[in-house]
């Protein structure tokens, strides 16, 4: 097989010198594989097989667990530190939890690559994360429809709450905490995630829409970020 672009999402030691890895690949989406010998101290692949580094890989095996063959670095790894690194963990955790195995998601792959480029810049993080989240939702056919629960287009004057199970917005009699006005939602519907003032609502909708895909357990990387943020606020 031809070497395929891929990113490492997660690596777990396996046996003495091997690792169980999860990769996001261009052609086959998320795959699980055994990478033999990569935990050996002398292994050249050991430092290569790191998260957030663009890789070229080949594998063998037809089932759910593949055997990773060739890995090459392809371009330079994004140097992630601090907040950007935690956001990267969040993206990896999201993809490992939400995407089914061997389900091709080319758009998600493209947005993931774009996210890694955006993470070193603080102001570019939120829009890139939202775009990735939206691509995941679209791939799994769970993206919000920007209409009310009856399928009627949104009224800019009214306030709405997102209902994930109906994939649409429920009109509220009056503004409540967490409700979003129709004008904002119309802007979001145009894909304007980066516009000032829309970051908060966009995050709220993405979170509500993703929740059913993640099952009951919360994302640990998000908890970690929230703890740091809470600590920072308490000091101010």
């Amino acid at each position: 097989m031809q070497p395929q672009p891929a990113f490492l999402l997660h690596k777990q030691p396996y046996r003495e010198t091997s690792a169980l890895v999860e990769l996001l690949t261009l052609e086959l989406g998320r795959i699980r594989a055994v990478a033999q010998g990569v935990q050996r101290p002398s292994s050249r692949s050991r430092s290569r097989l790191q998260p957030f580094a663009p890789l070229h890989v080949t594998w063998t095996g037809e089932g759910d667990l593949k055997r990773l063959r060739l890995m090459e670095m392809h371009g330079s790894a994004a140097m992630l530190v601090g907040e950007g690194l935690l956001c990267g963990f969040y993206a990896n955790e999201l993809l490992t939890r939400a995407l089914p195995l061997q389900f091709p998601v080319r758009d998600v792959f493209a947005y993931y690559g774009a996210l890694l480029n955006a993470l070193p810049r603080p102001d570019a993080r939120a829009p890139a994360l939202r775009q990735l989240e939206y691509a995941v939702l679209e791939a799994l056919d769970a993206e919000p429809r920007f209409t009310d629960t009856q399928g009627v287009s949104l009224d800019p004057q009214r306030h709405y709450v997102y209902r994930a199970e109906l994939r649409s917005f429920e009109a509220q009699a009056s503004p409540t905490s967490g409700s979003i006005d129709g004008r904002t939602l119309r802007l979001l519907a145009q894909g304007d995630w980066g516009a000032p003032g829309l970051a908060g609502p966009a995050k709220g909708i993405a979170r509500a829409a993703l929740a059913p895909l993640l099952g009951g357990k919360p994302l640990r990387s998000r908890e970690l970020m929230q703890r740091l943020a809470a600590r920072r606020r308490s000091k101010e």
Partner: peptide, 18 residues
């Protein structure tokens, strides 16, 4: 110097910000 080690260092550093 792995991503996890880096995240750990960042978390500790953030606790000690001021």
């Amino acid at each position: 110097p792995t991503v996890e080690g880096e995240a750990t260092a960042h978390y500790i550093a953030a606790q000690l910000e001021d």
